[in-house]
Design a protein around this nucleic acid. Structure first.
Length: 210
DNA sequence: GTCACGATGCTCT
DNA sequence: GAGCATCGTGACC
């Protein structure tokens, strides 16, 4: 299956859930960095109060959401960057925010990129993950996944299976519209320590993998 | 280990 | 000029 097909043929929340456990890597020209996706959020487009494309809002900065499924949408907020992938067909501005990975490849380099922070602090949040990859700009915004150094491995044989995937409300959403703010559009591996805000006491021995 | 708060810059009004 | 799809630090368990 190619990216265009994977990111268009189902509802965005279903795609988001399916991404949990798949490898996400970034090739920095020297080596491969990355790990297994453990947390992601769905943004459901024009109707979603929390989405950047709510009400059809469109500008150069959120253009990526309007592109065809599989296009990278990198968003800057404060000094931090977020990695999203557009979902659905062109002009249907939905997307997935990758929030956290369980690091596997190039850990030493990622620790350096994070100024020596290691352990769960390495990648337990969307901006931390981008720092770990060494990304400090929007260079890859609007590129299609297959024309970028990012790889989301869609081979089912490479997907790690979570014991349990939790659906919960999204993080940091404005509560002015409680209906959308409380929709369960964030998916994560139960008990995995790299999930943002995961409490130590809630971590499972196996990190939540089957 | 958990909580609260202030830093900080890009985007749109 | 306000508002954020956040993070790190420092105070107290």
């Amino acid at each position: 299956m190619d990216y265009a097909e994977y990111f268009t043929n189902r509802p965005t929340d279903e795609i988001t859930r399916d991404l949990i456990g798949r490898p996400l890597t970034f090739n920095n020209r020297t080596e491969k960095l990355g790990g297994y996706i453990v947390e992601a959020e769905a943004y459901m487009g024009k109707l979603d109060r929390a989405a950047h494309s709510y009400g059809g809002r469109r500008s150069p900065s959120n253009e990526g959401l309007y592109r065809t499924g599989g296009t990278i949408y990198i968003y800057a907020q404060r000094q931090y960057f977020f990695f999203d992938v557009a979902c659905q067909k062109e002009n249907e501005p939905q997307g997935v925010l990758i929030r956290a990975i369980d690091p596997v490849w190039g850990i030493d380099t990622m620790v350096k990129n994070r100024n020596g922070k290691s352990g769960v602090l390495l990648t337990n949040g969307p901006a931390k993950m981008m720092q770990a990859f060494g990304i400090h700009n929007k260079n890859w915004n609007l590129h299609f996944l297959s024309d970028s150094p990012f790889i989301i491995d869609l081979d089912n044989n490479h997907k790690r299976i979570a014991q349990e995937i939790i659906a919960d409300k999204r993080v940091g959403i404005n509560q002015s519209d409680p209906v959308w703010a409380n929709k369960k559009l964030r998916f994560y591996v139960a008990g995995n320590p790299y999930v943002s805000d995961m409490k130590k006491r809630d971590c499972a021995y196996s990190n939540g993998w089957a």
